[in-house]
C-alpha cells in the first residue's frame, strides 16, 4: 500500500514537471516566432489587467499624493531655473517649426513621402512591473487595439526605455533596455559625433554602473564624451532619432581594432508611470 502511494505521488510530480517544461518551451517558441500570444493568454492578460488597474488606483493615488507634497517643496527653486529656460525654449520652438516646414517642403520636392524619422506616439500607462530579478519588464495598458505591434520601440518622456515583446488585445509587455538576456533585442543606434554619425548596436547593459554598451562600431570617426546617442532606425523596428543617452566613455577592445562606447541612458528606468510606444510610419 505504501508503495502504491509513493508511485502515485511520483507520477504526479513527473507529469507536472513534463507539462511545466513543455509549457515553458511552448511559450518561448511563441514569443520568438509569433506576433501575438495564444488566445487563452490574451483573455487572461486582459482580464487580469482590468482588475490590476482597479487595484492600482488607490495605491497610485497615495504615491502621487506623496510625490506632490515633496514636489511642492521644490517648486520655488524649480521655478527659478525653469524661468531662465523658457525664453530660449520659445526661440527653439519657432526655429523647430520653421525647419519642420522647410523639411516637409524639401521632401515633397524630392518625392520622398516618409523617412525613418517619421513616427507616431501612442501613450500608455504602466500598470505593473514583473516582480522578478531576471526580467526587467513592465506591463502597459494598451495593446493591439491601439495599434501596438511587437518589437516597436518604447520611450518615456526622457528617452528610449525598451521594446514591446508581447502584444495582447488591451495590454502589452515591454522589455526594458536594462535586460541583459540572450534573447534581448539589439537596438541599432548612432552616435552624433562632431565629425558625423557613427553607427553601431546596443550590445549590453551593465547593472553595476547603469551604463549601456554600444558595440559593432566600424567607423574610425572620433567620438567625444558627452556626444548624444540616438536610435538610427536601421534595425527595422524603431524610428530614427529617439534619444538613447549620452556617451560616457570610449573604450578600445582588447585587440585595439573596434571601439565600444559606454552610454548613460537618458531615461530613468526605475521611475516609469507613463510611456509612449513609437510607431514607425513607412
Amino acid at each position: 500500500m505504501q508503495r502504491f502511494f509513493f508511485n502515485k505521488r511520483l507520477i504526479i510530480i513527473l507529469v507536472t514537471i513534463i507539462i511545466g517544461f513543455t509549457l515553458i518551451a511552448f511559450s518561448i517558441v511563441v514569443r520568438n516566432n509569433r506576433s501575438t500570444p495564444t488566445f487563452i493568454q490574451q483573455v487572461g492578460n486582459g482580464a487580469v489587467n482590468l482588475v490590476d488597474r482597479v487595484v492600482g488606483v488607490p495605491i497610485n493615488g497615495l504615491k502621487d499624493t506623496g510625490n506632490s507634497v515633496s514636489e511642492l517643496l521644490n517648486t520655488y527653486r524649480e521655478n527659478q531655473t525653469l524661468k531662465k529656460k523658457v525664453d530660449s525654449l520659445a526661440a527653439h520652438e519657432v526655429q523647430n517649426q520653421v525647419l519642420k516646414r522647410e523639411n516637409k517642403k524639401l521632401k515633397r520636392e524630392l518625392n520622398l513621402k516618409n523617412s525613418l524619422t517619421d513616427f507616431k506616439l501612442t501613450t500608455a500607462a504602466v500598470t505593473a512591473r514583473t516582480p522578478s530579478s531576471w526580467q526587467n519588464q513592465i506591463i502597459i495598458s494598451k495593446g493591439s487595439l491601439a495599434g501596438i505591434k511587437k518589437n516597436q520601440a518604447v520611450v518615456s518622456q526622457h528617452g528610449l526605455i525598451g521594446r514591446v515583446t508581447e502584444v495582447n488585445a488591451s495590454t502589452s509587455k515591454v522589455e526594458l533596455i536594462s535586460n541583459n538576456n540572450s534573447s534581448a533585442d539589439q537596438f541599432a543606434t548612432q552616435v552624433l559625433a562632431k565629425s558625423g554619425a557613427v553607427n553601431g548596436l546596443i550590445t549590453g547593459y551593465s547593472k553595476k554602473t547603469n551604463l549601456l554598451t554600444m558595440g559593432q562600431i566600424t567607423s574610425q570617426r572620433k567620438i567625444n564624451k558627452g556626444d548624444e546617442v540616438v536610435t538610427s532606425g536601421l534595425g527595422g523596428n524603431s524610428p530614427e532619432g529617439l534619444l538613447v543617452g549620452k556617451v560616457v566613455k570610449v573604450k578600445k577592445d582588447e585587440y585595439g581594432l573596434s571601439s565600444t562606447v559606454l552610454i548613460k541612458p537618458a531615461a530613468d528606468l526605475s521611475d516609469l508611470q507613463i510611456v509612449s510606444v513609437a510607431k514607425r510610419i513607412d
Partner: peptide, 28 residues
C-alpha cells in the same frame, strides 16, 4: 489575486528601491 497584483504594483512604484545594482527584491 489581490496580493499577486500588489506585488506587480509595488515592484513598479518602488522600482528604484527594489531593483538596485546589488540588491534585488522580488516581492512575493
Amino acid at each position: 489575486l489581490l496580493t499577486l497584483l500588489l506585488d506587480g504594483i509595488f515592484s513598479n512604484l518602488f522600482a528604484a528601491e527594489f531593483f538596485r545594482p546589488n540588491s534585488m527584491i522580488e516581492s512575493r
